[in-house]
Design a protein around this nucleic acid. Structure first.
Lengths: 157, 157
DNA sequence: TCCCATGGTGTATAGTTATTCATTTGTTAT
DNA sequence: ATAACAAATGAATAACTATACACCATGGGA
């Protein structure tokens, strides 16, 4: 997969685990991970990820991911669901995900819950999920979106 | 009361009722209310109010007040509680609020719930509340804080 | 009362982030 | 495969926000 996805994931990780108060700082942290980009790109990434800049209890501002639902079970559900993922293919603008038997509903449910703009809806059988993308959303967009929802898919797609 | 409080209240009102995406814009809205200040002051006010700048669903950024608990009953509780407020005095760094009989607990409870930095704690009887401010917090700070919590007090203090 | 300390403000400017433009890179349809 | 189109990126810069400094006002203590 392209490097942009890697970068977006790294940004999510960094922001969720430590206080970052400006883009220069974040840029340096990304460099340490071998990701070299410019502030312009970072600004666009943060906008894409809908990252907020919130008050650090009156002492300045820091970045924060949106919807820190942070249900403790969430990561587990992701890991479980990702295990069942087998492949994704596209046909006639539609995505078809194959899963291990029985996994389709849980993966589809995670996608539905994330409710990304890029995906109009999903239809899950037992081992197959139909992904209906929005108009003008590319296959790559769909894949990026799926990776954003289920980071564990990164190496399986 | 000084004009700063008026400004802070106006900022809260504006931000909670409409989308504002930068300080210039907010400055103009304040001007329409007869409040003329500079961007520098506004920047400080926003920091003081712990206002966040959050993603407007990927379309840019807008200001948002912290803790939008937005319990529908909140405003009612404030109005009710403020009615019972009679006066505030200071002695030995402590604030003493007099209320109508029976009102003290509800007012104190609102203060406690807001949990402002400036106030270490409160002690409520039936018609009296003791306010224990933090060290190095002035009377004026305490009053400003109370007004931030209960805007209706503005004209009663 | 008179100081001194503290806080609020504006001006100017430093610091930070978003966007424009040019270019490259990737994607889709023929 | 290739043309046409769309997306990604960096450099430069515009747009936006925070702060250093100077100044004034206020208010508590000698």
């Amino acid at each position: 997969m392209g490097n942009r996805t890697e970068r977006l994931l790294a940004i999510r990780n960094i922001i969720s685990s430590q206080k970052v108060s400006n883009q220069e700082e974040l840029l340096e942290l990304l460099e340490k991970k071998g990701l070299n980009y410019t502030q312009a790109t970072l600004s666009r990434d943060l906008k894409f990820l809908k990252v907020n800049k919130i008050s650090d209890r009156g002492r300045g501002y820091i970045y924060e991911l949106p919807d820190q639902h942070h249900l403790p079970g969430q990561e587990l559900a992701e890991t479980y669901a990702a295990q069942g993922f087998v492949s994704i293919q596209f046909a006639n603008k539609l995505g078809v995900i194959k899963t291990l038997p029985g996994y389709a509903p849980s993966i589809a449910s995670l996608i539905d819950k994330a409710n990304p703009f890029e995906i109009v809806g999903t239809l899950a059988g037992d081992d197959t999920i139909l992904i209906i993308p929005h108009d003008n959303v590319s296959e790559k967009d769909v894949i990026n979106t799926l990776i954003m929802i289920l980071p564990e898919l990164k190496d399986k797609i």
